[in-house]
Each structure stands twice: as structure tokens, then as C-alpha cells.
Design a binder for these strands. Structure first.
Length: 271
DNA sequence: GTTGAGCGTT
């Protein structure tokens, strides 16, 4: 969606996209448009937002009609304070016109590493100047924020950023982030609260599993242990369900009841 | 009422 009301990108035949980072979450395209328009012809302003919450993700894309104007905007607006935050303006790396920008910007900034300019580091280096100056007083915000962010579990962006974490993200998304999220957070919190990393090994869940195979358990129910063959409960479940087709309810109740029972003590313990 | 170092929509 564009700020201009059109669906999707407007005319991207000859536009240059700028990436505006570090903008306030409250900053909107309407706020950025006049600011950027001052330095050139802005074709479009787009702020990606969260799919669920609809909040801005903290960065925006500003499309200029001409590269020189875009470049000027970068120089003039980069590091500028907007809505209480100093924004970072740079040419977008990806996009419909990335190639053009690549030519325009790379030649000026890193003509030497033109071929390898695709690396992710270059922009940081050139931005370092601003960072050093503007973030000197606020720099710690980054380190602190990261730690805090990690603890607070990121939202949507985490899934994009780290692929390894995509698993959890997928899980969250699939299961619905409300409950699973809360559960996970609590579990973690508890870990941090009273347990050391070593103690984590003795996590209740694992303990439970281990307990099952523990000799103590056998003592309690020798019947199972003495059994020559151990039938997996899972296989039994479907089989039973098939036989009990006439009462499909039983199937649903079986796993549910067990789970609830199993969770009962745990929940109590946690509480 | 919150966060953050990141690259985009019909």
C-alpha cells in the first residue's frame, strides 16, 4: 500500500528507493513525505507494518523520482531527528530498482568493492560516522535493548532475521501466538528466576520422561515392566479409535484427559 | 502504556 492511495507500488519504472531506518514507531508516511519531499520529488512513501498489529516496523521506504535527489536526501536526512528519533536514510538494498541504486550509490561510496559491494557490512561502515556521533549518548540503548528484546521475545521480525529461529516462529504462528507465547515466556522466566543453567537439565518435562523409565517407576508398576512386549501407546490409540468408531468421542477424550491430568500437577507446581 | 540496528506492499 502506498501513501498515495494506490494499490501496491505506483510507478516503479524510474524511481529510487530509500530505506529509512530507526524511525519512531509512531512515525507515519505522512510525516516522512513532506520531510523527504523537500529534497526532491517523492514518488511514494511506504512503511511496512506488522501484519497482526498493524504497527510500523520502524523503517520506511521512500521512493524518489531521481537518483540525485534521493542521494541528496540521504545525505541531508540521514541522522536527522524525526519524532524524537534520529532516522537513518540509505539506499534500499532490495527492491524494484535496486539495480539502479546499486549503480548510483556504489560508484560513489565504494567504487573499489563494487563487485563485493553486496556484502552486508558496507553500509554500516559509512554509517559508523553518524552512529559514533549521534548514538554516543544513546549507544548503550542498543546493547541494553537487545538483551531486553530477547527476553521479551520479538514479534514478527525475529522470524525474518534468523532462520534458525524460524522454527519457533512458525510454531508460534501456527499455534496462535497468544497462549504458546505466554507459556514459553513463563517457562523461561522461571528458568532465569530460580534455576541455574545446569539445573535446566532437570527440567520437569524431562524429569517426567526420565521418571517413566526410572527403576522406581518399575517398582511401582511391575506389571508393565514384566511385560515382554511393550506396546506403544500411540499405536494403541488409533487402533482403539478404529474399533471404537461408533464412539469417536472416546478418541478425543482419551488424549485430552491424559494430557490434562499430566498438566495438572505441573501447573500446580508452577503456581 | 512498551520495543529496535532492520530492507517493502497490490
Amino acid at each position: 500500500m502506498s501513501h498515495f492511495g494506490r494499490s501496491g507500488p505506483p510507478d516503479i519504472k524510474d524511481t529510487y528507493s530509500l530505506l529509512v531506518l530507526n524511525i519512531s514507531f509512531r512515525t507515519t508516511a505522512d510525516d516522512l513525505f513532506p520531510l523527504f519531499d523537500r529534497y526532491g520529488k517523492v514518488v511514494d512513501v511506504f512503511i511496512p507494518r506488522d501484519r497482526r498489529t498493524g504497527e510500523s516496523r520502524g523503517f520506511a521506504f521512500v521512493r524518489y523520482k531521481y537518483a540525485d535527489e534521493a542521494q541528496k536526501a540521504v545525505e541531508r536526512l540521514d541522522g536527522r531527528n524525526v519524532d524524537g528519533r534520529n532516522i537513518m536514510v540509505q539506499f534500499a538494498k532490495y527492491g524494484p530498482n535496486a539495480e539502479r541504486i546499486h549503480k548510483g550509490r556504489i560508484v560513489e561510496v565504494v567504487p573499489k568493492t563494487r563487485g563485493r559491494s553486496r556484502s552486508r557490512s558496507p553500509r554500516r561502515g559509512y554509517r559508523d560516522d553518524y552512529r559514533d556521533r549521534d548514538y554516543g549518548r544513546r549507544g548503550r540503548s542498543r546493547s541494553r535493548g537487545r538483551s531486553e528484546r530477547d527476553r521479551h521475545h520479538d514479534r514478527d521480525r525475529d522470524s525474518r532475521r534468523s532462520r534458525s529461529r524460524s522454527l519457533s516462529s512458525d510454531y508460534d504462528r501456527g499455534r496462535g501466538r497468544g497462549k504458546a507465547d505466554d507459556d514459553r515466556r513463563r517457562s523461561r522466566s522461571r528458568s532465569y528466576d530460580s534455576a541455574s543453567p545446569a539445573r535446566r537439565s532437570y527440567s520437569p518435562r524431562r524429569s517426567h520422561s526420565y521418571d517413566s523409565a526410572s527403576p522406581v517407576r518399575r517398582s511401582v508398576s511391575p506389571r508393565r515392566s514384566t511385560s515382554p512386549k511393550r506396546t506403544p501407546p500411540r499405536e494403541e490409540s488409533p487402533e482403539k479409535a478404529m474399533n471404537g468408531e461408533r464412539s469417536p468421542r472416546s478418541q478425543s477424550a482419551s488424549p485430552r484427559g491424559r494430557r490434562a491430568d499430566s498438566r495438572s500437577p505441573r501447573s500446580s507446581d508452577e503456581d
